[in-house]
């Protein structure tokens, strides 16, 4: 079986290597891929949408359908992780508590366990001691990470960035909080239900904006129809429409990243984790 796989790979690789000689040279400005559709996008993006970053305008406006179903795919992936891994919290048998005045670790079995207080502190079964340096540094950093993420979402029209990147950075800030402290603290602040709701809300914002254009009497995903609502001319309406859609993408991507992390890091229990 292994020999067969290696032979297949050698054959495929040598065939592909042989045919690379037919490809246009690297950096060739007149290669077929650069001649047909992209000159239109580059030359008309300013007069059509007033967005200088061509990638953003193509992503959310010219090829809006693509991105809409891309966010749907991400939502489906988050849902698939949830359905595969999630098990009810009651399945957790043992709980470990640290009695802080004496430093003794206690194990509780069954349903009876103490309330969390200053005396009893819940710890994970695979507990690593609390590290004040990592915790403090991460708490300082998280604000700036989140502000930077909002900047990335809002400034995607004029610089590299946009909904996908900003959403992932926002999600990464919550994941950093969960890693530096513990998972329960993160779930208390950004719960599982919130994550599920946000991921659906993001897709709804995108699809709803697109459908609103149709209600206003123009094509699906033609943001120029939003001009009377936004109170601007038709070109700026497309720019603002791209911004609304980017917010939807950012919310969906953020929530799905956090949701997948919660399920993966706690093996579905959402109680003890990495």
């Amino acid at each position: 079986m292994k020999i067969l796989g290696k032979i297949t790979i050698l054959l495929c690789g040598s065939l592909l290597l042989f045919f690379t000689s037919d490809f246009p040279d690297f950096g060739d400005a007149n290669s077929p891929a650069s001649l047909h559709l992209s000159p239109y996008f580059i030359e008309h993006t300013l007069e059509d949408t007033a967005v200088p970053n061509v990638v953003t305008s193509v992503l959310a406006d010219y090829r809006g359908y693509d991105t809409m179903f891309e966010t749907t795919v991400i939502l489906t992936a988050g849902l698939a992780c949830f359905l595969l891994l999630r098990i009810p919290k009651r399945a957790v048998k043992n709980r470990y508590y640290l009695h802080e005045p004496t430093g003794v670790t206690l194990r509780f079995e069954g349903d009876k366990y103490p309330q969390e207080s200053d005396v009893f502190k819940r710890i994970d079964s695979s507990w690593v001691p609390y590290d004040i340096i990592i915790n403090f540094t991460c708490r300082l950093l998280i604000h700036f990470i989140q502000i930077f993420a909002l900047y990335v979402v809002a400034h995607g029209h004029h610089s590299p960035g946009g909904g996908f990147q900003g959403g992932v950075v926002l999600g990464a800030s919550v994941i950093l909080f969960a890693i530096s402290g513990n998972l329960r603290a993160a779930i208390k602040r950004f719960g599982e239900k919130t994550a599920a709701l946000f991921s659906a809300t993001g897709v709804f914002i995108y699809a709803g904006t697109a459908a609103l254009c149709m209600v206003l009497g123009e094509n699906f995903i033609d943001y120029a129809a939003l001009a009377p609502i936004l109170g601007s001319d038709r070109i700026m309406a497309r720019s603002h429409g791209i911004f609304i859609v980017e917010i939807g993408v950012a919310v969906a991507v953020m929530a799905v990243m956090i949701w997948i992390y919660y399920n993966l890091s706690s093996a579905g229990k959402q109680d003890e984790g990495l």
Partner: peptide, 26 residues
Amino acid sequence: AVDVAFTEATVGAGVSTVFCVAAIFH
């Protein structure tokens, strides 16, 4: 490809490594 680079830095190097480590942890 600055946008792709930004996405790769946040997604590929940041989040997917964390996912892999979380899966291997369990």
